[in-house]
């Protein structure tokens, strides 16, 4: 179980332009779906984008505060193309 603002701030402390949206997948606040929009992903393939975030979340996953995550990572251009950002 984890405070969503803690996770959001943790990600933003590494990627300062990040837009972060977190959803609780199970109602137990430990299976999270996280959407991250940041230009830090520019030029990186998807797996490297995901691994950047997994590295940031490592301590929270290691202590089992977060049990599982589903990630969606997008650059700002891609988010605009998908209508997720105006």
């Amino acid at each position: 179980m984890v405070e969503f603002t803690t996770v959001e701030n943790l990600i933003k402390s590494h990627l300062d332009d990040a837009i972060v949206k977190i959803h609780d997948l199970t109602g137990t606040a430990d299976h999270l779906s996280i959407l991250i929009i940041s230009d830090a992903f520019q030029g990186k393939i998807l797996i490297d984008q995901h691994q950047m975030i997994m590295d940031i979340l490592k301590e929270k996953l290691g202590t089992n505060e977060i049990h599982a995550v589903q990630l969606k990572t997008l650059t700002k251009d891609k988010a605009r193309a998908k209508g997720l950002l105006s």
Partner: peptide, 17 residues
């Protein structure tokens, strides 16, 4: 080089990448 697991491969496939 690792490209991804199911979620990533599915997303890349859907996005034509």
């Amino acid at each position: 080089k690792l490209i991804g697991g199911n979620d990533i491969i599915m997303e890349m496939y859907e996005d034509g990448e």
